Simulated assay, not measured.
Amino acid sequence: MDDMMTGVSPLDTAKARRGGAVTDPFACDVLVVGGGAAGLAGALTLVRARRSVLVLDSGHPRNAPAARMHGYLGHDGRSPADLLAEGRAEVAGYGGRLRTGTVVAADRLPEGGFLVRCADGSTVRARRLLVATGLLDELPGVPGLGERWGRDVLHCPYCHGWEVGDQPLAVLADGPLAVHQAQLWRQWSDRVTLLSHTWRLTGEDRESLAARGVVVAEGEVTGLVVAEDRLTGVTLADGATVPCRALVVAPRFTARSGVLSGLGLPTTVLERDGRVIGDCVESDPATGATALPGVWVAGNVTAPMEKVAGAAAQGVRAAVALHADLVAEEIRRAVEAHRAARRGEDQRGGAGQRGGAGAGPRTSARS
């Protein structure tokens, strides 16, 4: 498991300047699992708080298929890969360490903290965990969706709506989000078609769609029509073709939560209108704290609907709460050590006083 970027942590630097060896058995204060926007924002906050931090990232970000990201103030239209590269450089610049690696398991240690095992056989010991592993988008079973995902097979109108505005758009209805999606995307184009596919529309659904000028195309979708590497339409089971320049789908959001499940932290099912649309890891919405002491989460692993900016904000909030928890632990230990030292001084002082009283008065050798 090679370092992507290396650096000496501020904590280790401070100890070296005092002339003492680094004897802490933990490799780092905080292990951040996942190097996307949430993980890197959390790591940056922690290294600036002079914590020793290691970021482990598998190198497969959720938004890798997208050429640009949108709606992130100051970064609109920027490549997601460029944002992450700059984030890694910033973390490393403050002494954080970053490695490419896939975490496969984690165990709580009897003395506190965690032992994390990676796919290459290496291990890391950390006092706290910040898990920002994101999620997997499980696409509907229509041939060709995976190859076009993030390009002209889309999900979020706030991420991509402007770029396909005023073009013919189609929405795949295979779950309860479809009608809602069609009504949302209608804001960006007046040429929206809802493909009924495998979902049964109610009379109320059809009325609301018709009222907004959304056309309903009946029949199951069997494939995509692509010309010169651009989506031009979809095919239906009866052989008909529905023209479109973008196809909107609702993936199933599956949390990348293997390391948390191994620690005994299960996922929670997400439902919409009685149908499962994904799962996530529950956490305190204000701090990212999980039900497992010492473990925080941030980003899409706990909030599937968050975009890049929101995921980064969650990473910062979780890092602040995590740092406060470390400070509380250090205060506890410092007070215990201080009290032990005082008890030792009192005991030595008492022994000295008893020894003096039993020796009797001193006499001069010349008397």
Rank of each mutant, 00 (worst) to 15 (best):
E86P: 07
L54M: 14
D120P: 10
R88F: 06
P143Y: 04
L98I: 14
P65Y: 09
D120W: 10
L139D: 12
M69Y: 02
A89R: 15
V47G: 07
G95C: 06
V142E: 04
V142H: 02
A92M: 05
V103R: 00
A49I: 04
R97N: 03
G96K: 01
L84M: 14
H75F: 12
L44K: 02
R88W: 07
R51E: 06
A64K: 14
R108E: 14
C118M: 14
Y94E: 14
G95A: 10
R108T: 10
R68E: 08
H70K: 05
A89L: 13
S52W: 01
T100A: 14
G93L: 05
A119E: 15
L135K: 11
A89E: 15
R128W: 00
D120A: 11
G113V: 03
E90I: 00
A49F: 09
P110F: 03
A119F: 13
L54N: 00
S122M: 09
V116C: 13
T133L: 11
A64P: 10
V47T: 11
R48K: 13
V116T: 14
R88V: 03
G141Q: 13
E138W: 09
L130Y: 04
G96H: 04
V103L: 03
V142W: 02
R97P: 00
R99T: 01
L84V: 11
A105E: 08
L84G: 02
R50N: 14
L129N: 07
P80M: 05
V53P: 00
E138R: 15
E138D: 15
R127W: 08
L44I: 04
L135W: 04
D76F: 09
G121C: 11
G96S: 08
H60F: 14
R68N: 06
A85P: 01
A105C: 04
R128V: 03
Y94L: 09
E90F: 00
G113Q: 07
A43M: 02
S58R: 15
A81E: 15
G141W: 05
D57K: 14
L130S: 03
D76N: 12
E90C: 07
A105V: 05
A119S: 15
R78W: 12
L139H: 08
V53H: 08
V103F: 01
R125W: 08
R128P: 05
P110G: 09
P65E: 10
P80A: 05
L135A: 06
L130G: 01
A66M: 12
V131C: 02
R78I: 12
G134I: 04
G121W: 11
H70V: 01
L115H: 07
E138K: 08
Y94P: 06
R78F: 10
G146E: 15
G134T: 03
R50K: 13
R117S: 15
T102D: 12
V104A: 09
G101A: 12
D107Y: 05
A66T: 10
